[in-house]
């Protein structure tokens, strides 16, 4: 199987998210960067699929040159190829991103044949536009379903069976390949890189592309933190002696 995963480099904030002075980006001065969580699981899923069915995993990202780090990380956990569509580091809107990724995929397919499966995240962790995967899949004529938390491939039948979590159960979809999915964290537990994986990732040759896609209709004006509600916390006590006070609260709320 030939599988392509689209991953986005995002800041990895902790307790709070700070914004740069111009309001145009997350202040990452004291932060690391990571692959958006849904997509990290997407890479793991792709690697597991080729471990079962044979084949290769290509990882594609659009971002600043440093986004090559996320491609190397993917290689360290089993991806075979990495492709970077380099930007100047400014945030690209979803339409522009989708056009650039679509062009890149068309180029890769023209060179080495179609991908059986395109794996996207359900939404990117930072800007969360909920659309890039759908736009790319539509432009390429591939069926896509979002919210996927389970994938099985039947190569003989040429189908992908995909599970989507709903409250108290799941829905089942069966897509003809070549297909696309938007996956969510929880589809698997991503592995950590091994020493051998880390070494292999250093040798990854990142293919660099550029795109002249023009901006779409949505543009970023300013990022800001939501207003925080200030809560007076009532301390019920220290350690087990607080139990009766806790149960009083439960009684008051009528949940006992």
């Amino acid at each position: 199987m030939r599988i392509l995963c689209c991953v986005k480099r995002v800041a990895a904030p902790g307790a709070k998210i700070n914004v740069t002075e111009d309001g145009l980006a997350v202040d990452a001065t004291h932060l690391g960067f990571a692959t958006s969580p849904h997509e990290e699981c997407g890479v793991e899923e792709a690697v597991q699929l080729v471990e079962r069915h044979g084949g290769e995993v290509t990882v594609l990202t659009l971002g600043p040159p440093e986004a090559a780090d996320q491609l190397r990380y993917a290689a360290s956990v089993g991806a075979h190829h990495g492709v970077l569509v380099a930007t100047d580091g400014s945030a690209w809107d979803p339409q522009r991103t989708a056009v650039a990724l679509t062009e890149a995929i068309r180029g890769l397919e023209a060179e080495a044949g179609p991908f059986d499966l395109l794996v996207f995240g359900n939404e990117s962790a930072d800007s969360g536009g909920f659309q890039v995967g759908v736009r790319v899949a539509y432009a390429l004529g591939r069926p896509i379903v979002n919210g996927i938390k389970g994938i099985e491939v039947d190569e003989a039948a040429g189908t992908v069976t995909a599970r989507r979590e709903i409250d108290g159960g799941f829905e089942v979809y069966e897509l003809p390949m070549p297909a696309a999915v938007g996956v969510k964290e929880g589809i698997n537990l991503p592995r950590y890189p091994t020493m051998r994986g880390r070494l292999a990732s250093k040798k990854l040759e990142v293919a660099e592309l550029s795109s002249d896609a023009g901006p779409g209709g949505q543009s970023l004006v300013r990022l800001h933190r939501p207003r925080e509600t200030v809560t007076e916390t009532v301390i019920l006590g220290n350690s087990p002696e607080a139990a009766p006070a806790v149960v009083d609260v439960l009684e008051e709320l009528g949940v006992l």
Binding site: T233, I235, N238, S239, P240, A242, L256
Partner: peptide, 21 residues
């Protein structure tokens, strides 16, 4: 950010709440 808090070891506090219930 909570309305109420208990400052302590959850391994002691949770069983104590269950016992009280």
């Amino acid at each position: 950010k909570a309305n109420w808090a208990v400052i302590g070891d959850l391994h002691e506090v949770i069983p104590a709440i269950a016992a009280e219930v």
